[in-house]
Nucleic acid binder design. Sequence first.
DNA 1: TTGACGTATTCCTATATCGGAATATAATGA
DNA 2: TCATTATATTCCGATATAGGAATACGTCAA
Lengths: 112, 112
Amino acid sequence: MARAAAASDVFNAISETHRREILDALMPGERPVGELVDALRLTQAQVSKHLRVLSDAGLVKCRADGRRRLYRVDHERLRPLHDWMEKYERHWNARLDRLDDYLGDLQRKDAE
Amino acid sequence: MARAAAASDVFNAISETHRREILDALMPGERPVGELVDALRLTQAQVSKHLRVLSDAGLVKCRADGRRRLYRVDHERLRPLHDWMEKYERHWNARLDRLDDYLGDLQRKDAE
DNA sequence: TTGACGTATTCCTATATCGGAATATAATGA
DNA sequence: TCATTATATTCCGATATAGGAATACGTCAA
């Protein structure tokens, strides 16, 4: 048996360097495929196929604009990743925790 | 050409369900291989091989105890993951939102 | 030393999937 | 309608890798 059903799996989708680059490139906002091809110096087929994987994983959404397709990140779909990571964060995020507490205090005082 | 050098890549290492389960099982602290086999209901060979991948990626460390091997998570190695995710966190992380609000307030006060 | 235990590795087969090339499809403009 | 543009898909060969089975290796106890 080979790898279990990997399609449509978020972790699998982001395991590929080029796919992470695509997501990064889409971070600021939606962009047509052609721009990704130019920006990332990948083949058009490469980009299309990677977008397919990202799309199957729900990580990107697409909308048509004439003959172009504008892709954008669906940030919410990264949540599984974040949820999994969160358990480990505390181990090297002690400072952020302290800051968090501090800001919480400030807000509580403001509310008084 | 196939997938680029994936070994020793953190993103690749955590793309597999069983490997994430192993990391989760090691979260509370170091554990011998046999315990992982029992806890996760995997073959001993499976666990050993997955531990190898995790180890190559630097995500786990090992120490010998008699004939047993105690594995533990090297949390620091998850940092690449965190760093990449951080860019996306803002979209659903209340903690960072508070920080944003707070810094926004400071700026507004400075402007007065 | 010998045998049992704990773990790692090797050999194998099936499958996933990357990238390249060519082609298909859809929308647009002349 | 026809050519062009923008994107998606198919076919291909090469490689990565999961899991099973068997086995090798290192350590301990008797």
